[in-house]
Amino acid sequence: MSYGTEQLAARLKAAREAKGLSQRELSALAGVPQSHISKIENNAVDLRVSSLSSIAHALDLELMLVPRKALPAVQSITRSVASAPIINAATQRELDRIRETVNALASHVSGANIDDLQRRIREITQIQSQIDPEILQKVRRTIESIESSGSNEAVNQAVENIRSLRNQLAHRAASHESPRAPRPAYRLEEDQDG
């Protein structure tokens, strides 16, 4: 096998593990037999484009042909995205349940408070950080309690709790980034007036 396929197999395996999926779970999502996924990850089989496409889609990845001249820009962008932590499966499930709960609540209650609550939930889901599913369960329970009370005070409290969580996550994500020296956007050629 070539170095290119070894590197591709390693990236697929890393993406699967980062999503918290087993080979069996990925098999169910991609429609590719688990034994074939194992062989692909161990670089023991030639990778077919159809299998690669199915697995990539299941891992929320896209395949595309990039002009060689644009490759450095694409690699730079993908490096910055790949270095961001990926939300694990349990956290994703809890975020989905929170969205469903808020949408159900929005069908019963309307107003600026509910719109603000929906906006705060979107903000949390956009932060690419590991969120503890237990914290999200507490948030969901708070939102579910709003359904029974229906009070604006309960909605405001939920909005405040979610805003606080969002700020904590944002600050945690910022503190984990490695500090870099600022780089100039461009450089002027130095004069050669010797």
Rank of each mutant, 00 (worst) to 15 (best):
R187H: 11
S80H: 13
G20F: 02
D115R: 13
K138G: 07
Q128A: 13
S83N: 12
K69G: 07
L165P: 02
H108L: 11
Q192G: 11
E134G: 09
I114R: 03
I143Y: 01
S164Q: 15
R141M: 11
I143Q: 00
L105S: 01
S53I: 09
V159S: 02
S80I: 07
I162T: 00
S35P: 07
R97D: 12
E6S: 06
A104G: 08
R119E: 13
R24E: 14
L59C: 02
D96E: 14
I121Y: 03
P33H: 14
T5W: 13
R141F: 11
T5E: 10
Q137V: 11
S76P: 01
A173G: 05
A173V: 07
Q34D: 00
S2L: 05
R141G: 04
L136T: 01
R48K: 15
D60G: 10
R24A: 14
L61K: 05
L21A: 06
A14Q: 13
S110C: 03
G4V: 10
R97H: 13
E190L: 15
E62H: 03
G20K: 00
D116E: 11
G31L: 00
S149H: 06
E6Q: 09
G111M: 01
S2G: 04
K13W: 06
Q7R: 15
G4P: 00
Y3T: 05
I40W: 11
H108S: 11
S175L: 13
L47Y: 04
E147F: 02
N113W: 06
T125D: 14
K19G: 06
D193M: 07
G4N: 13
P67F: 02
L21E: 01
S178W: 15
A73D: 08
R187F: 12
D191W: 07
A30H: 05
V66C: 07
E94G: 01
E177M: 15
T142V: 10
D116R: 09
P184S: 14
S35V: 09
A181W: 04
S110W: 04
A89E: 09
L47S: 00
R166A: 15
I131D: 03
E25H: 08
L12N: 00
M64I: 03
A173S: 11
L12D: 02
T78A: 06
S145G: 11
A18K: 07
L188H: 10
A181Y: 06
Q192R: 15
R79D: 10
P72W: 00
Q7A: 09
L29F: 02
R140A: 02
D46Q: 09
L117S: 01
Q23H: 07
N167R: 12
R141P: 00
A15N: 05
H108W: 04
G194C: 04
A9C: 06
S27G: 05
E123F: 10
V32C: 05
S35Y: 10
M64Q: 09
Q34T: 10
S76T: 12
A106Y: 02
S145L: 13
L169I: 08
Q192I: 14
